[in-house]
């Protein structure tokens, strides 16, 4: 596989630093994948795993195992804004699932897929630890808590 992906100079330097930051170099895999995801429009492509394998001198299979184990890494493209609606118990009791469905309807997108305009991926996710402010969603890095359907739609409408 020819590697077509490359991190920025800073990104590569970051990964090199992470390799020496922890007691064991394998610990740099998670931070490196985060970095790739950040520089690759929110997802980690197979090419970027091959790239990391060379950069970090670790087998592709080990990086891929980590990549596919953790839910925060996306292995396919996502919208510009990744909207994750909590549907676990406390949120479910407070309308989290209805919220997820409503958002999908409103922005015309299926659960886990990218909206036609490329703005959103909306996914149902498990507990995010904000149960006292149910229902809630995470938009990219930000927690939006104590939502109503209207409030959530308003927040997303603001996002370009």
């Amino acid at each position: 596989m020819t590697s077509t992906f490359q991190l920025s100079e800073e990104g590569a330097a970051f990964v090199k630093r992470e390799l020496n930051r922890y007691e064991d170099r394998h610990s740099a895999i998670i931070p490196a994948l985060y970095r790739v995801q950040k520089e690759n429009n929110g997802w980690v492509s197979p090419e970027s795993v091959t790239y990391l394998s060379h950069l970090m001198d670790l087998p592709e299979s080990e990086i891929e195992e980590v990549l596919r184990f953790y839910t925060m890494f996306n292995t396919k493209p996502v919208g510009r804004h990744h909207v994750q609606v909590c549907c676990n118990i406390s949120c479910a009791m407070n309308g989290g699932r209805e919220l997820a469905d409503r958002l999908c309807q409103e922005f015309d997108v299926h659960d886990g897929e990218i909206s036609g305009d490329g703005r959103f991926t909306i996914s149902r996710v498990e507990c995010l630890g904000a149960c006292d402010k149910a229902p809630m969603m995470q938009v990219n890095d930000t927690f939006c808590e104590g939502l109503t359907e209207e409030k959530a739609i308003e927040i997303l409408r603001e996002m370009k």
Partner: peptide, 22 residues
């Protein structure tokens, strides 16, 4: 150290594996 989305990492040896980069 930041995890990456796995409930099982709350189990202490799961967490250790994760911290080890696995």
């Amino acid at each position: 150290y930041s995890g990456a989305g796995a409930y099982i990492c709350g189990e202490e040896t799961g967490m250790i594996s994760s911290l080890e980069g696995l």
